[in-house]
């Protein structure tokens, strides 16, 4: 697999006098503070949604950042896997050991929840493969129960029992994926 963030080196600690834009000035992972290393105190995590998904789109304008990461079309499993590749290269270069996700950050949602769940199984297998041989782990997972129009009246507080069941199904699957990826927590 080819490098995505070409020309950007592994980020190292250089100290407060460094002017290198690609170096830490204060974060010294192995430095001990009150009996623990900085890395142990500060379990930093990458948010899948913002870092690998957000393009800068807001209510005033279209996105400015290209987050295709080399995939030929977005909203596909090819793109979902390219995001995994980009995410792992990014975390390795920064020395970040954890990631967090919503279910729909990982894969494009299908019309049929059974197909969405199948995609989540496939993509989480791919993430597990990438985790092998690294010390990168899942910090927490969650289910996005606000973006889809079906949640316009809420998820746990919706007026529709059918929609409530879809929310429950998403929580169940997101819990499955969180456990599969060894997540420390699960967020509501």
């Amino acid at each position: 697999m080819s490098e995505i963030f070409k020309g950007i080196p592994e980020i190292k600690f250089e100290g407060k006098d460094s002017t290198n834009p690609f170096a830490f000035k204060y974060y010294d992972a192995k430095k001990e503070i009150m009996g623990k290393t900085m890395e142990e105190h500060l379990s930093f995590a990458m948010a899948w949604w913002h870092n690998l998904g957000a393009t800068g789109v807001d209510m005033f304008g279209r996105g400015t950042a290209d987050k295709s990461f080399g995939a030929s079309s977005q909203g596909t499993m090819e793109h979902a896997k390219a995001k995994v590749d980009a995410g792992f290269e990014f975390m390795k270069k920064l020395g970040i050991k954890y990631f967090c996700f919503h279910d729909v950050d990982l894969v494009p949602e299908a019309d049929d929840i059974n197909e969405t769940n199948r995609r989540l199984d496939e993509l989480s297998d791919y993430i597990l493969e990438k985790m092998e041989g690294t010390d990168i782990k899942c910090l927490w997972g969650t289910a996005n129960m606000f973006g889809n129009p079906r949640y316009m009246n809420g998820a746990g507080s919706t007026n529709s029992a059918d929609v409530f069941c879809f929310a429950a199904a998403q929580v169940k699957k997101a819990l499955d994926i969180t456990v599969k990826l060894g997540g420390r927590g699960y967020v509501f």
Binding site: F5, F22, T64, Y98, R184
Partner: peptide, 26 residues
């Protein structure tokens, strides 16, 4: 913490390059 420090943070709209993603985390 039992969890960690998750950067639920995004680059500003005019910071749109790959380099900016790294500057943000640094």
């Amino acid at each position: 913490l039992t969890g960690g420090f998750n950067f639920d943070s995004k680059n500003r709209r005019p910071s749109y390059t790959y380099e900016d993603m790294f500057h943000a985390f640094i």
